[in-house]
Design a protein around this nucleic acid. Sequence first.
RNA 1: CGGGGAGUGGCGCAGUCUGGUAGCGCACCCGGCUGGGGGCCGGGCGGUCGCAGGUUCAAAUCCUGUCUCCCCGACCA
Length: 560
Amino acid sequence: MTRLSSYFLPTERDPPADAEAISHKLMVRAGLIRQVGSGLWSWLPAGWRIHQRVVQIVREEMNAIGGQELLMPVLLPADPWKRTGRYGIDELFKLNDRRGADMVLALTHEEIVTGHVAAAVRSYRDLPLILYHFQVKERDEARPRAGVLRTREFIMKDAYTFDRGAEGLEAGYEKHMRAYDRMCDRIGLEWYRVEADVGVMGGIGAHEYMAPCAAGENDVVLAPGYAANVEVASADAQAVQLPGGSDAPQSVPTPGMTTIDAVATELALPEGALLKAFPVIVDEDAMKLVVVRGDHRVNEIKLRTALGQDFRAARTDEIEARLGPPGFIGPVGAEMPILLDEGVAQGSYVVGANAPDAHLRGVEPGRDFRFEPVDVREVVAGDTVGGSAVRIEPAIEVGNIFKLGTRYSDPLGARYLDESGTSQLIWMGSYGFGPARAAAAAVEQYADEHGISWPRSIAPFDIEVVTLGKEGSEERTVADRLYAELTDAGIDTLYDDRDEGPGAKFADAELLGCPLRVTVGRRTLASGEVEVQVRRGRESRTVPVEGAAEAIAELWRGLP
RNA sequence: CGGGGAGUGGCGCAGUCUGGUAGCGCACCCGGCUGGGGGCCGGGCGGUCGCAGGUUCAAAUCCUGUCUCCCCGACCA
């Protein structure tokens, strides 16, 4: 029984003053969530129903691939985190219990689940395993933002696979990929599965599930048959008009011109006819020179992957000591490894001369400097993949799947005995999904100027019945009966029985965004009908009062 | 972490520059009208002006400190 007159659904006419994202504004206005602190949110009853519906879909798909649901604590002893090297992570909340023991709040549960498996699994016969739970995650985010899109505390479904080796992991990974495809479809999101960065913690493969929308924090690169996070995306660069070559580099004066723009303008060349040099330091003090086309940008994540290690940008004093004045540096004559981005085609370029106020023109990679080819530039819209131009759009990461390998089983000693009696490391994968983000993404993707428009599968209620009559009126009687019949038919129905004007009721119904709104009012009742509005598109029709519940339920079943 | 902004009733805001009885709209409560797109009239309730200290006869307003929140960027195993 959900009657709006006694339901805790505090709707607001105005969004919070400082809200920017659509989902932030609408979820607050619709009475789904309320803020407690920075990155801390309560889910009010209607909002929690949405969250629970997403959770149930995810649970069903996890169970369908043989996942076994369990529950692990949020408050954890610090020791396993010290063993895996994650105790130093800035986002990790650290605390002490009354005896002074180091404790942490879980960011995820690799350490704990691996500990359980390490303690219990002995034989290859005990594997594979898929374990998962829905549990609160705590992360001391540098900058929470946009309602429930990025919070410090949130519920995540995290699953872990335990296998005998790489092949088993591959199989578990494939299962999750199919399960994730299905759950995203069932939730009703527009989504992409994209190739993802594996991060510095190591890993051997990862995908992210991305829901495109304006409030997204990630950029995805898309072309027919291709989807990747811009952090790892590769594409063919757009061609640039290069000047004719020459036998040898020639110095040209460029006084005070320390930017690509200034030099290109001075020489009347496109920025892409220049090469940009980016000196980096690895292993404390070894300098390498990364070179990309003048109109391209170095993507630091791709560069880290290409280097196979962490790096930092060189300081000014290091650049001056080993190359030349910043703004005039280049690869010619540089006594250090040179990494040349593949976006630089054969041809003749302008580079810094490693001397004050001068550049060199007519420089040809290979002839005038030796290099190692790398792919480190950030893809931009219009680059091509397989001949098709890519587009780049913002997206929310709602899930990720990750091949961990032995990253955790090794430090935590999760081993088994194989058929030959040899001790082997267990191979692991981890698989996250954020129901709150999925809900927010759905809001972002389907909202219109009137409010939210939920996909049928995760709406807080299937149908909202609005009666325009006062207590004791015929409208009220018919609506009461319809409400009961819909509920009996298994439809989750919200009944707006408040003594409000029609405008307020319609506005609130469209703000909340249930897929169907049924209006029982004098106007249609006169001809023995009630009005049914499909929220998405806001088209209305009427159905006879006689048999209305079944007709409405049928209409509902056909909605997206 | 760098930059910018904001804390005044449940929500949205004015008042601060130039110190002098804390206001407006919405919401809420009471009465009445209205009844298909946030309707109308009348009457009400509700605020230690984020917190602490200081200046002053007097502080939302000036000064110092502090806390919190938001936005942009960096970061986000």
